[in-house]
Amino acid sequence: MSSGRPIATTRSAAGMPTGRLAVWWVIASEIVIFGGLLASYVMYRLAHDAFAEQAAHTNTWIGAFNTFVLLTSSLMAVQAHKAADEGDGPRAARFLQLTAAGGLLFAVVKAFEWTDEIRHGFTITSSTFWSFYYTAAGLHAAHVLAGVVILLIVAASAKRSVELHRVELIGIYWHFVDVVWIFLFPLLYIAK
């Protein structure tokens, strides 16, 4: 697999490794996807007073707990990066698995939160606020779940101490997912 890697991949005329460069471009393309959705949300939120009434029904404590979970998993990801830089693959793998566990916990909490809200009649079609709520948080949750899968794959290779540079790359992505939630949390939960 690695013998088929072209020479092009090993060059770094821009002064940084190819993988890191590409991950930043991925993040650039993600910024505009989330940015477009959140800009639309903010416009509606400011224009319609009904949004504030509906937003009052979201549960700040669950949102805050999930923020805590994601921030902690980010800490684990960056510790994995540090371990990988020190060449300690198995230690990096353990931290990555903890990161993935954080992501899964986030998804489970979200599942319970949504179940509760749907039982109270707040479904995606209830009003435009709830449509945005489920769409934005759902798009973010999809990123979390995709991240968990990639984290576990990278952890498996890091355990054997191969391709350790990947640890940093998945970390950058994971922190980005964290940053998106840092903005979603006040937008959907706090500002009432």
């Binding site: 996807i33 477009g36 639309s40 449509s131």
Partner: peptide, 25 residues
């Protein structure tokens, strides 16, 4: 392309939801 397509991707998701599950974006 990368800088401009993001909002439309988000918009396409919103429109598909409008078509299929009855949201009102």
């Amino acid at each position: 392309f990368m800088g401009s397509v993001g909002p439309l991707v988000a918009g396409a998701v919103m429109l598909i939801f409008d078509q299929t599950i009855g949201t009102a974006f």
